[in-house]
Design a protein around this nucleic acid. Sequence first.
DNA 1: AAAATAATTTAGCCTGGACTAAATTAAACA
DNA 2: TGTTTAATTTAGTCCAGGCTAAATTATTTT
Lengths: 228, 228
Amino acid sequence: MISRKDEPFSRSIQNYLKVIYSHTRENRPVSTLGLAEALDVKPASVTNMLQKLDEFEPRLVNYQKHHGVSLTEDGEKEALRVIRRHRLIEQFLYEVLGYSWDRVHSEAEELEHVISPYFEDRLAEFLGEPAFDPHGEPIPNRDLEVTQDESIIPLSLLPVGKKAVVRRVTAGPQELLAYLGEIGLHPGKGVEVVERNPLDGTSRVLVDGMEKFFGVGVTGAVFVSVAE
Amino acid sequence: MISRKDEPFSRSIQNYLKVIYSHTRENRPVSTLGLAEALDVKPASVTNMLQKLDEFEPRLVNYQKHHGVSLTEDGEKEALRVIRRHRLIEQFLYEVLGYSWDRVHSEAEELEHVISPYFEDRLAEFLGEPAFDPHGEPIPNRDLEVTQDESIIPLSLLPVGKKAVVRRVTAGPQELLAYLGEIGLHPGKGVEVVERNPLDGTSRVLVDGMEKFFGVGVTGAVFVSVAE
DNA sequence: AAAATAATTTAGCCTGGACTAAATTAAACA
DNA sequence: TGTTTAATTTAGTCCAGGCTAAATTATTTT
Ligand SMILES: [Mn+2]
Ligand SMILES: [Mn+2]
Ligand SMILES: [Mn+2]
Ligand SMILES: [Mn+2]
């Protein structure tokens, strides 16, 4: 039983919680190996940290030896706090300081651990309480509620010929993001699949008046909503 | 001999360098005790760190057992980099996010270690390459040059009856700064000493149309330039 | 110049969060 | 079901940067 002492969680702990959160959005309990990769840390270090996290008071994760971890209510709250800061900062860097959207992530990854609650509030206010970050990811509000639009689908599933609007571009490798930005594939832009290879899913896509070719690696990471 | 490895200096090291820099602006080599107080750390820890700093390659400080430390060229460069970031951030918090000037310091104290060179450049540009922070302290420019106005004097030395303009309010305890802000004692404001007690230096001061009473603790920390 | 006091340094310890190598457990396959 | 392989955990280290207590050096006072 480790007491909380009212100190903020360490930067390491915050990173762990955030990664556990995003990974459990998809496949339930996360594996040690998965965390190790995402955090760029060796598996033994992950086990170590999970054991600590598991005996925090109040408990932040549910950890079962050899069966992965998931977040408790409290762990999820904290993860969402970090994510809110991260995305607010990204939005600030993009809108105010003129960063390109492929540069915002690494900077936010550091700042998210350092700004005070007061800074967070002032920044959110200054930005006009934004609901989305530059990649189209939802920013949890002050009460940590996340608005998740149900009606969005990956571009890989958009039927040929249907017009759609880009809603979210999930951060892949920095260079990919840079490229997609250059060709104008941003949230809000219209897109249409003009042809799709039935074998490997490769698509010809009309974006910003130009035709481009994407594999499923790309079309699976771009989310769109079909124009009504 | 400790190699640099091109990693950035740790947050601890940055804080040490910054404090050594400001303390040596006044009284030459800084004492272990002085550093310990300023850094809120025990003297033994300071000695420890100074020994490490002294064998960095390239060397950051000149340290002589029992005779204090001072910065080398390289150490001063690094200190100025941190100070530039600190003051740019303070200016941002004050001008853009609407912080009061007594709240900017503690926030900047953290952020100064975390922002990237790119962030620094973008921020400086966004702010219009400011030369002073909210307290009137000079912000080193991109080449780390500090403009120091020679003609400013502490309010404690301003002759009775001479009109002057506030130029700098050196950060004291937060509450004092908050009070001085409330009564309008900011850089740019006019002031005049209407009477001074010859015994203890206590002064009646006209500021923002109101008369206030200050001890030398205050008047020594407020710097003014005499109106031409 | 000796004694008393103050400042500094040394020695040894601790904590967080990483790592490697070895041991163990779970999963997949024959 | 037994065996091989993959994932995970344990055990023991390391490093930064703190700390306390004891030892040492400087400074001041008598
Ligand atoms: Mn992070
Ligand atoms: Mn994002
Ligand atoms: Mn600092
Ligand atoms: Mn300042």
